[in-house]
Write a protein that binds this DNA or RNA. Structure first.
Length: 734
DNA sequence: CTCTCCCTT
C-alpha cells in the first residue's frame, strides 16, 4: 500500500546538473507567469499534467521570490503521506540542503522541520486541517498550495472552504490550487470573491504597510505536461465478463505488441488473483503448445493477434510480434504482503514481459516503471455512505472519465503508450465526467466537530465546494448531540466536545476513550482505540483460513473483538513489542498477526496517550481485563450506543447469525473477520458497518442491553418499568 | 465466510 509506494522520479538523467534539469521542466516556461499571478491575485489555479514539475518547482519559485520573508513558510499539501515525504526529499536535494532544514515535511507521527529555519513544508492535507485548530488563520504561512485538488478528498475540500474564509481576514495570504484536470473552472469560480467585502484582520495577520491588495479574481495558469501520448482503443462490442476480457486482452498484447509492461486495472483482491491465475495458465498452455509445434516443424511458433477483440480506433501494431519467452504476472493491491508488493515494482527480467494486475492503488498511489500498455475494466470498488443506516457501502461501480484518463496516463510515462478500454467508445461517453467528491459520500461527524471547534457555528451556511447532502449533515449533528459533544443550541460543549474535536479519532471512539476514565480502564481503551484504527491486526486470510482461525482462537474471548485486542497486545508486549526484534517478529508470524499493523497501532496508541494526558487523564489507569472485562465493554457501549444490534429470534446458520439493528431495524451480520463470527451474543455494539453484498458489523463487542439506556439516556427512550424491550424503532430520541 | 483506497497537532 502506501508504504510500498514509489514516487515519480524526475531525476532520470543523473548526469545532468540539478539546475539544468529544473530549467528543462515544462513548468519552467511558466515561472514568471505563475509568480506574477501569485503576486497580484489572492488565488491562483494551476492546471498541469503529471510530470510538468508543478509540485517540486512551484514551492521553490515561491521561496525564491520572497514568499518566505519574515519567517513565513510555503506549505504544499498532499493527499498521501508518502508523497509528502518523498517530494520533500527531492526538493531538499534540488536546493542542496539537508531534509528538515530549509525544506521539510509534516505527516502524522512525523514532523521533519526546523522551526524558524524551514521555508517550504510538504504536509498531508489532514495535518494542515488539524493545524488550523491551533492557528485558525494559518499565520505561519505566506502561501498555501493545495496540490492534487482534483482528487476532491474530504480534507482538501474542507481546507479549500476554510482557506476561502481565511482570505477574507488575510489579504496577505496567497492560495495556489494545483489540479490535474479541467476542474480549474470549479476552483476559480469558488475562489472568485470580488464581490465579498474583506473582514478586519484578527491579530498580526494584517497586510504589511505598502503591500498591494491582491485582486480577488483568481488567475489560471495551464502548464503543458511532459507525458507521452497514449492511443486509446475501445471494444467494438461490450464485453460483459470484464475479467475474462482483461485476460484475453493482456495475452493479445503480449503476443503482438512491442516491448513494454502491461498494467491491468480490476476492482479487488478476488478478481485480481483470479485473473493472475488465468493469465499464468493460459500462457503456460500456449507456450507448451507452441514448443510442440516447433518440434514438429511449424514455422510460426506463436499465434498472431486473435480476432476476439476488434478495435474501433488506433493505429495498427507496427511492432514486431512480441515473441517473448516469458510472461511475469504480478498481483498488486493494498492488502498484499509487502514482499509480494515489491515484486510488482521490480523490473521484469530480460526477454520477459511483466503484467501487473492491480486495484485502484495503481491509479494514484503508486507508480510502476516500464508500463507501456494499460488495460482498464473501467470499474472500481467505491465507498458510499448511507446516513439512514449509518453504514458504508463498498460496491463495484463504473469509474469516471477523469479516472479513466488518469489510468490511461500510466501507459505514457516512458514512451508513447496504448490503453485498451474494455467498453465501447459510445459507452465510455456515458460515464460520469468526474468522481463524486468524498465530501458527498462520507460520514461527516468528525468534520462537523472540527468546524465547530474552529468557531464555525452555522455549518449549513459554510461555503462548501460541494455542499454535502442535508441528511448526512443532520445525521452528524444528531450523533454529536447524542454523544454530548453539542448542546441544545448546537454549540460545542466543554470540555467533552472540545476534547472530542481535539482527539484524532471518530467522535464515537473518542467518547469511548474519554469515558474510560470513569470506568477505570484508560490504558485498555487506548489499546482498543488504536487497534480499531488499523485495517486489521491479522494477516490476510487468503489460502490460510484454517491457520488464521486457529491463531485468532488463541486470543479470542466471548466479549468480542475489543477485549480480544487486549489479549493480543499483552502477548505482543510480552514478546518484546515494537522493540522486540526477532522475537516479536517470530511472535507475529506464528500467530498470523501483521507486524506492520501492530507497530502502527503502537504509534497511534502513543499519540492518543499524549492527548489524554493533556486532558488530565492517567493513561496508565488500568483494570485487570481478564478478571473483569465489563469496564471495557461499558466504555465501548458509551461510545457506540447508536451502533447496537440484537440477535434476531431465528438468526443463525452457516453464514453467521442475523442481528437486528436497534436504530433502523435492518438486518446485520457479524463480519467473518470478527472473533464473534460464530458466536450468538444477545446484544452487541459495533465500531463500523460495511455493506459488501450483506451488511457486516466490524469490531464487535457483546454488551448487556440494560446498559444502553443507562449509558446513553439522550439517545434511548426510557424503558418502561415492566422491563419489556422497547420496540426497535422507538429507540430513537429524535 | 471477508476488505477499493486514503488520512488526523
Amino acid at each position: 500500500g502506501a508504504e510500498g509506494g514509489r514516487l515519480v522520479t524526475y531525476n532520470r538523467d543523473e548526469n545532468l546538473a540539478l539546475a539544468a534539469q529544473r530549467s528543462r521542466l515544462p513548468i519552467f516556461k511558466c515561472r514568471d507567469a505563475i509568480l506574477f499571478l501569485v503576486e497580484t491575485r489572492a488565488t491562483t489555479v494551476l492546471v498541469g499534467q503529471t510530470g510538468c514539475g508543478k509540485t517540486t518547482q512551484v514551492p521553490q519559485y515561491l521561496a525564491e521570490a520572497g514568499w518566505c520573508a519574515g519567517g513565513r513558510m510555503v506549505a504544499c499539501t498532499q493527499p498521501r503521506r508518502v508523497a509528502a515525504q518523498t517530494i520533500a526529499a527531492r526538493v531538499a536535494e534540488e536546493m542542496g540542503t539537508p531534509l528538515g532544514r530549509d525544506v521539510g515535511y509534516a505527516v502524522r507521527f512525523e514532523s521533519v522541520c526546523t522551526p524558524g529555519v524551514t521555508k517550504i513544508v510538504f504536509c498531508t492535507d489532514g495535518v494542515l486541517l488539524r493545524e488550523l485548530m491551533d492557528d485558525p488563520l494559518l499565520t505561519k504561512y505566506g502561501v498555501v498550495m493545495v496540490d492534487e485538488a482534483h482528487e476532491r478528498s474530504l480534507a482538501s475540500d474542507a481546507l479549500l472552504g476554510l482557506l476561502k474564509k481565511i482570505q477574507r481576514r488575510r489579504p496577505d495570504l496567497r492560495v495556489v490550487i494545483a489540479s490535474a484536470t479541467i476542474q480549474a473552472e470549479t476552483f476559480a469560480e469558488f475562489f472568485d470573491t470580488r464581490d465579498v467585502p474583506l473582514k478586519p484582520a484578527l491579530g498580526p495577520a494584517a497586510l504589511a504597510p505598502g503591500a498591494r491588495v491582491p485582486s480577488r479574481e483568481p488567475g489560471i495558469v495551464s502548464v503543458e505536461g511532459r507525458a507521452h501520448s497514449v492511443a486509446i482503443h475501445y471494444l467494438a462490442k461490450p464485453a460483459p465478463e470484464y475479467v475474462k476480457a482483461a485476460v484475453a486482452t493482456a495475452l493479445d498484447v503480449h503476443r503482438s505488441e512491442g516491448p513494454g509492461d502491461v498494467l491491468v486495472f480490476l476492482t479487488g483482491e478476488d478478481e485480481i488473483e483470479e485473473a493472475c491465475e488465468m493469465l499464468r495458465d493460459a500462457w503456460e498452455e500456449e507456450t507448451r503448445a507452441a514448443s510442440g509445434r516447433r518440434m514438429s516443424g511449424a514455422t510460426n511458433a506463436l499465434p498472431g493477434t486473435t480476432n476476439e477483440r476488434e478495435r474501433t480506433r488506433g493505429e495498427p501494431s507496427n511492432a514486431s510480434p512480441g515473441i517473448r519467452s516469458r510472461l511475469v504476472v504480478c498481483p498488486l493491491y493494498a492488502g498484499l504482503p509487502p514482499a509480494a508488493q515489491t515484486e510488482a515494482f521490480a523490473p521484469a527480467p530480460r526477454y520477459a514481459r511483466k503484467v501487473v494486475v492491480a486495484s485502484n492503488v495503481a491509479e494514484t498511489s503508486v507508480t510502476i516503471e516500464g508500463v507501456a500498455y494499460v488495460i482498464d475494466c473501467l470499474f472500481a470498488k467505491k465507498k458510499s455512505y448511507d446516513a439512514s443506516r449509518g453504514a458504508e457501502s463498498l460496491l463495484v461501480a463504473p469509474v469516471s472519465r477523469a479516472a479513466a484518463n488518469q489510468r490511461a496516463g500510466r501507459a505514457g510515462r516512458l514512451r508513447p503508450g496504448k490503453c485498451f478500454r474494455l467498453c465501447t467508445e459510445l459507452d465510455f461517453g456515458r460515464l460520469p465526467e468526474q468522481e463524486t467528491p468524498e465530501m458527498l459520500r462520507s460520514d461527516l461527524a468528525s468534520l462537523v466537530l472540527q468546524l465547530k471547534h474552529l468557531g464555525i457555528d452555522n455549518i449549513v451556511h459554510f461555503e462548501w465546494l460541494s455542499p454535502p447532502p442535508a441528511a448526512n449533515m443532520l445525521k452528524a449533528i444528531e450523533l454529536l448531540y447524542a454523544l454530548g459533544a453539542l448542546d441544545d443550541d448546537a454549540k460545542l460543549t466543554s470540555p467533552l466536545g472540545v476534547r472530542l474535536a481535539e482527539l484524532p479519532l471518530e467522535p464515537q471512539l473518542g467518547k469511548a476513550l474519554l469515558v474510560s476514565d470513569d470506568m477505570g480502564c484508560v490504558s485498555e481503551m487506548l489499546t482498543v482505540a488504536a487497534f480499531t484504527q488499523v485495517t486489521s491486526v491479522w494477516q490476510s486470510a487468503r489460502g490460510r483460513q484454517k491457520a488464521l482461525d486457529e491463531a485468532r482462537d488463541r486470543f479470542a474471548v466471548a466479549e468480542g473483538d475489543a477485549v480480544t485486542f487486549l489479549n493480543v497486545r499483552a502477548a505482543w508486549e510480552r514478546a518484546g513489542g515494537v522493540d522486540g526484534g526477532g522475537k516479536s517478529r517470530a511472535f507475529a508470524e506464528k500467530n498470523m498477526l501483521s507486524r506492520r499493523a501492530l507497530v502502527r497501532a503502537s504509534d497511534i496508541r502513543e499519540q492518543l496517550s499524549k492527548h489524554v494526558s493533556r486532558f488530565g487523564l492517567n493513561p496508565s489507569r488500568s483494570i485487570a481485563p481478564a478478571k473483569d472485562p465489563d469496564p471495557v465493554r461499558r466504555a465501548m457501549a458509551s461510545g457506540f450506543f447508536a451502533n447496537a444490534a440484537t440477535l434476531a429470534p431465528h438468526g443463525g446458520g452457516a453464514d453467521g447469525c442475523a442481528f437486528r439493528s436497534v436504530r433502523g431495524g435492518g438486518t446485520l451480520y457479524v463480519h467473518p473477520g470478527s472473533v464473534l463470527f460464530r458466536a450468538r451474543p444477545a446484544c452487541v455494539v459495533y465500531v463500523s458497518a460495511v455493506n459488501t453484498g450483506k451488511e457486516y458489523m466490524r469490531d464487535v463487542t457483546s454488551v448487556d442491553p440494560e446498559w444502553l439506556p443507562e449509558l446513553a439516556p439522550h439517545f434511548y427512550a426510557k424503558r418502561n418499568k415492566s422491563g419489556a424491550e422497547p420496540p426497535p424503532d422507538a429507540a430513537f430520541a429524535f
